[in-house]
C-alpha cells in the first residue's frame, strides 16, 4: 500500500489557531483514497529526526513566548532541513514557522532573532503592538499551471519582506504586510504562509496538490487522485467567496 510519512514539528508548542487541523485534513484525504499515512511528532527533548525520511514536514503557529524557545532547538537541524528541501521533501509552514524559516525576525524592541536562514525573506514586527493583520483572507494561487483561490484566516503582527516568489496574490485581506498584494512564499515543494483556518480545511485542491506531489515523488509516477465527495467544501467555498469577494 502506498504510504505518506508526515513529520509534525513541535505539536505541543505550535498548536494555536487550529493548525493541527491541516494534519487531520491530510490524513483524511490520504486515507479516504486507500493510502496509508504515518504521522511522527517531534518536539524538544525528542530524538533527532532525519528530515529526509519524510514526505511532508509540517509546522504551525504558536504563542510568541514558545516560538523563541523552539527557534533555538530547530537551528540544530538547519543543514538537515536544507538538504531535505533540496531533495524535494514537502514543507508546509504556517505563520510562526513561516517566519522562522526566513533570515531573521526583528521584534518590537529592535532585537534580531535569527531564523533558520533557509529562505531569503525576513520579518519585522509592526512597531504598534496592538495593530495586527487580522481577518479573513482570500488569495489566488497557481498550482501546476492551474489557478485556484485559497481561503483562510490571518492573524499576525509580523510584516514579511523580500519574498522572491509569493504563494499567492491577495484578493481579500492583507497578506505578507498590511494591504499587501502578495501572500506567503512558494516553491514546488514549499508552502510558507500566514493562512490559518486551518489552511487545508477549505481548500481541497491545494491539499490534493500536496498529496499528489508526495506520491509522484516517492513512487516516481504521475498519479491521478481518486475524486472525493467535496460537497461541504464546495458549498463552503461558494458561500465564503461570495461573501468576501462581492
Amino acid at each position: 500500500m502506498k504510504e505518506i510519512k508526515i513529520l509534525y514539528l513541535y505539536p505541543d508548542m505550535l498548536e494555536l489557531y487550529g493548525d493541527y487541523g491541516n494534519i487531520q485534513v491530510l490524513k483524511y484525504r490520504i486515507e479516504s483514497r486507500g493510502y496509508s499515512v504515518i504521522i511522527d511528532r517531534y518536539s524538544i527533548d525528542d530524538d533527532a529526526p532525519d528530515f529526509n525520511n519524510y514526505d511532508i514536514v509540517f509546522a504551525g503557529g504558536g504563542a510568541d513566548n514558545e516560538q523563541s524557545i523552539l527557534a533555538e532547538d530547530l537551528i540544530k537541524y538547519k543543514d538537515n532541513i536544507k538538504d531535505a528541501i533540496k531533495n524535494g521533501v514537502f514543507f508546509l509552514l504556517i505563520c510562526g514557522s513561516y517566519q522562522l524559516f526566513g533570515k531573521y525576525y526583528k521584534d518590537v524592541d529592535g532585537n534580531i532573532i535569527p531564523g533558520l536562514d533557509v529562505f531569503d525573506y525576513y520579518t519585522e514586527s509592526n512597531p504598534d503592538r496592538k495593530s495586527r493583520c487580522i481577518g479573513n483572507i482570500v488569495i489566488e494561487v497557481e498550482l501546476n499551471n492551474f489557478k485556484t483561490t485559497v481561503i483562510g484566516f490571518e492573524n499576525h503582527g509580523g510584516q514579511t519582506f523580500n519574498i522572491s516568489r509569493p504563494f499567492g496574490n491577495v484578493l481579500f485581506g492583507n497578506g505578507n504586510k498590511f494591504n499587501d498584494t502578495q501572500e506567503g512564499y512558494f516553491q514546488n515543494n514549499v508552502i510558507a504562509t500566514y493562512l490559518h483556518g486551518p489552511l487545508l480545511s477549505k481548500n481541497p485542491v491545494l491539499t490534493d496538490y500536496i498529496i499528489k506531489y508526495c506520491l509522484d515523488r516517492k513512487y516516481n509516477e504521475n498519479i491521478i487522485l481518486e475524486n472525493l465527495n467535496d460537497e461541504f467544501e464546495n458549498l463552503c467555498r461558494e458561500q465564503l467567496l461570495n461573501r468576501f469577494l462581492k
Binding site: 487531520q24 483524511y28 480545511s201 460537497e231 461541504f232 458549498l235 463552503c236
Partner: peptide, 20 residues
C-alpha cells in the same frame, strides 16, 4: 454551518449523516 460540517466530517463521522 459548512465549516463545522467539514470539521465533523474530517474527524471520521459519516458525512452522509451530516446535514448543513
Amino acid at each position: 454551518a459548512y465549516d463545522i460540517a467539514i470539521r465533523i466530517k474530517t474527524s471520521g463521522f459519516d458525512s452522509c449523516k451530516i446535514e448543513p
